[in-house]
Design a protein around this nucleic acid. Structure first.
Lengths: 109, 109
DNA sequence: GCTTACCGCTACTGAATCAGTAGCACAAGG
DNA sequence: CCTTGTGCTACTGATTCAGTAGCGGTAAGC
């Protein structure tokens, strides 16, 4: 399957609406986690992999490629992978989710 | 794999942190989309399926079971599936994501 | 009673995706 | 040359998802 992008059909929606592309992109395994683990700054492929519970490099590389093509993550020589401007904005947009999870966990744990 | 819940290990994390359980739960295929499609009120299994691009009932039922066990979605006799209080809160927590997607789409489409 | 039309859901097969492990090619340091 | 770390690919097997058909139940219309 092709990489999800706004303005064209994605898995599960032909509308091309950006939210659908985003849900496709971020709904893939490890995508949100990778984003989450990059919150503290750039990391090498292997550091990132270690933080993601030793996810298989196949999948990690695939997610990184998708996130790079989406302009969310960038690979800088020397420092490794890091969030771009869109990535940081996305992470901030995910902050309420973190807060929700904390409350949810308190009620259900 | 068992349903993700705060306070116990999930796919990709043994920490039991709620955010990890949430990322596991919501990172599964169609989970975010189902949530999204329930934003306008209760819907029957088949209505929901139609909105989700005729997703296979197997997966839809599986996601609904997980979301029900997580206390996010409830099934009411007569009206069908609907968001519970936690589900509505989660949807609100996802609003910034929608806004982000719109901006992202504007820059990349 | 019998059809019709919904409802939620299950069974089944095949396709896509992911997991897990090994190891390559490259570059830098000693 | 040898070691170390980098990003990444190859391969096989397990898990998950997709796609289609159809079941058992309820309720209405006739």
């Amino acid at each position: 399957m092709a990489v999800a992008r706004p303005g064209r059909p994605v898995r599960g929606s032909r509308s091309g609406r950006p939210i659908m592309a985003a849900l496709d992109l971020l709904g893939r395994r490890w995508a949100l986690r990778v984003l989450w683990e990059l919150r503290d700054g750039a990391q090498t492929f292997r550091e990132l992999r270690a933080r993601c519970d030793e996810v298989s490099p196949t999948v990690l590389n695939q997610r990184l490629a998708e996130l790079r093509e989406a302009g969310i993550v960038a690979h800088e020589d020397g420092s490794g992978y890091a969030l771009g401007p869109d990535g940081r904005a996305l992470l901030e947009a995910l902050a309420p989710l973190h807060a929700w999870a904390a409350n949810w966990g308190r009620r259900r744990a």
